[in-house]
């Protein structure tokens, strides 16, 4: 399995703060990679740097055979990367339909794909003409994911999709991501919820203080509680 995305020695500074201090990790083609870590470890900055929303001050970001560090955000997106930010970035004043129409860069939405999306997220069909601002938190998250995937993309970056969502909705989200995985989309997902991460991830990278402190198979980390505790500070009851 080759790597679709590879970061090597990536540094990012925001104002006076040196957030990413040499980040190295890879996202294998077709796989589901989880980026874990405590609050403030630099996970969000990592995704934003890949998208070109922050400029890397040093290092390479190789995507699909080309170094994309330093490219503008639209250029990065046009290479086939879909992005769901932590804030979801829903256009609240636009309807669900308009949100998705805008995301379909290459023209009208493909109807087969739309029906498939509706199968994954039925709420979107129900509220098709409603301003997205009126959706619930979980429905907004589904719209954000649908928007990033309304056309086939090579890589999907998702920042904490389970944040603030009820367990039933998270379960639904797991199903949706399993379905996405079957479409041969490569996914890099930032997560704090280890259960969610464990149920989906193939490979994992763990960040702390702007560096990658562990990377490998999800199975290896899932089976080693001591390692989990050391890397993520998980107590045993958090596993429940």
């Amino acid at each position: 399995m080759s790597n679709l995305l590879a970061l090597s020695g990536v540094n990012t500074r925001i104002g006076h703060y040196h957030i990413l201090q040499g980040v190295d990790f890879v996202v294998p083609q077709g796989g589901f990679t989880m980026l874990l870590g405590r609050n403030g470890a630099g996970k969000t900055t990592c995704l934003r740097t890949i998208m070109g929303l922050w400029k890397a001050s040093a290092g390479r970001i190789d995507f699909d055979g080309a170094d994309i560090a330093g490219r503008s955000t639209p250029a990065v997106a046009q290479l086939g990367i879909g992005y769901v930010p932590e804030s979801m970035g829903i256009f609240a004043g636009l309807t669900v339909r308009e949100n998705l129409t805008l995301a379909a860069r290459d023209g009208p939405i493909d109807e087969k794909r739309l029906d498939w999306m509706f199968g994954l997220f039925p709420a979107l069909k129900k509220f098709w003409h409603l301003p997205a601002g009126h959706l619930s938190g979980g429905q907004k998250q589904m719209l954000a994911i649908a928007r990033a995937m309304i056309e086939p993309r090579k890589l999907l970056l998702v920042d904490e999709p389970t944040k603030g969502l009820a367990p039933a909705i998270i379960a639904h989200m797991v199903e949706a991501f399993r379905e996405l995985k079957r479409t041969d989309t490569t996914i890099l997902l930032v997560e704090q919820n280890f259960n969610f991460a464990r149920s989906l991830g193939d490979t994992v990278a763990v960040m702390d203080s702007g560096r990658i402190v562990h990377s490998g198979n999800m199975g290896e980390l899932a089976g080693n509680e001591a390692l989990q505790y050391r890397l993520l500070g998980l107590s045993l009851d958090a596993h429940q």
């Binding site: 998208m51 929303l53 503008s72 955000t73 639209p74 997106a77 046009q78 992005y83 930010p85 970035g89 256009f91 609240a92 004043g93 636009l94 308009e98 129409t101 805008l102 995301a103 860069r105 928007r147």
Partner: peptide, 21 residues
């Protein structure tokens, strides 16, 4: 027009969708 309305709300997200705002 859709781009403009979206850009008024969140121009960074419009760029993330691949448009040169």
């Amino acid at each position: 027009g859709l781009l403009i309305r979206a850009g008024v709300e969140d121009s960074e997200m419009v760029e993330s969708l691949g448009y040169r705002i």
